[in-house]
Design a protein around this nucleic acid. Structure first.
Lengths: 140, 140
DNA sequence: GAAAAGCCGAGTAATTTTATCGGGATTTGG
DNA sequence: CCAAATCCCGATAAAATTACTCGGCTTTTC
């Protein structure tokens, strides 16, 4: 039940882009340095995020990445779906989808995963990047 | 964000034990056959569940496994914690625990994982094995 | 035209998960 | 007592996934 490093670092990097929104494109090396991450690993992550339309890129010197939309309009769930695949706790259950799997107890356990999936989506789609950067220190 | 086969099959097997509660111990081979699972893989799972005190075993001929407590008293969350480790979406955040990880955006993203973790626990600790076996067919 | 940056397919390394093996220890029933 | 059924369990192999690297290309600025 863990989020992968890709997902975790992707959200982290998106948070930086949210903090720097309006500052013009931020080069990847800067983000990598700021978060102590491998430049090349982040590159893989950003490739996916760009192709999914969550960020835009500017090539060449003075280039870099920026959010494609303001932080208020990007949900954490959007980012995680791109990097982790659909928010489904078990394989036979993509979001929206509900295949039976032919096993005896299948129909019995399905309700568990459906409820879990829906709650997870609820939380993650309720938090935008704007919420993340406005988190008060005493949130805990 | 997936539950492992261990977790999924563990819950499935526990569901069978719940259905057969009061029928005396059920041999593992029967459960494996019923769910089309490898006997030896299930054995690993049951070892963990027994050590965690969720099931009891009877050795020898006519032996098998049974729930240690009635289905009403075993939560799906209990089973998953044994098989998947703590219900924590990211490493730096065991249940109850909240270590800082020293990265710049750390404190900002932490709230996401805390909320997610708490909601997941809420769902999984709210469903008992009794609920699972009483699931109406139109649950969806 | 050199330096700064992104683009990207392919490949390797590390880790985790899944599954198997082989032999033991207990219990039942004959 | 013996044979069959069944759990016990450490070790390890196989497979899958995840994390990360490489190398070379393209685009833009100065």
């Amino acid at each position: 039940m863990r989020v992968s490093a890709k997902g975790e670092n992707g959200v982290r990097a998106m948070t930086i882009l949210a903090l720097e929104f309006r500052a013009g494109p931020i080069p990847l090396r800067e983000i990598a340095a700021r978060e102590g991450l491998s430049y090349q690993f982040l590159e893989q992550i950003f490739l996916l995020l760009r192709r999914a339309g969550l960020i835009t890129s500017v090539r060449g010197a003075k280039g870099g990445y920026a959010l494609a939309r303001p932080p208020e309009e990007i949900k954490v769930g959007d980012v995680l779906r791109v990097l982790e695949g659909p928010l489904a706790p078990v394989e036979c259950m993509g979001e929206g989808n509900s295949d039976a799997c032919g096993k005896i107890a299948a129909c019995l356990t399905r309700g568990i995963w459906e409820r879990l999936r829906d709650r997870m989506a609820e939380v993650l789609d309720d938090i935008t990047l704007a919420d993340v950067i406005n988190t008060p220190a005493d949130y805990t």
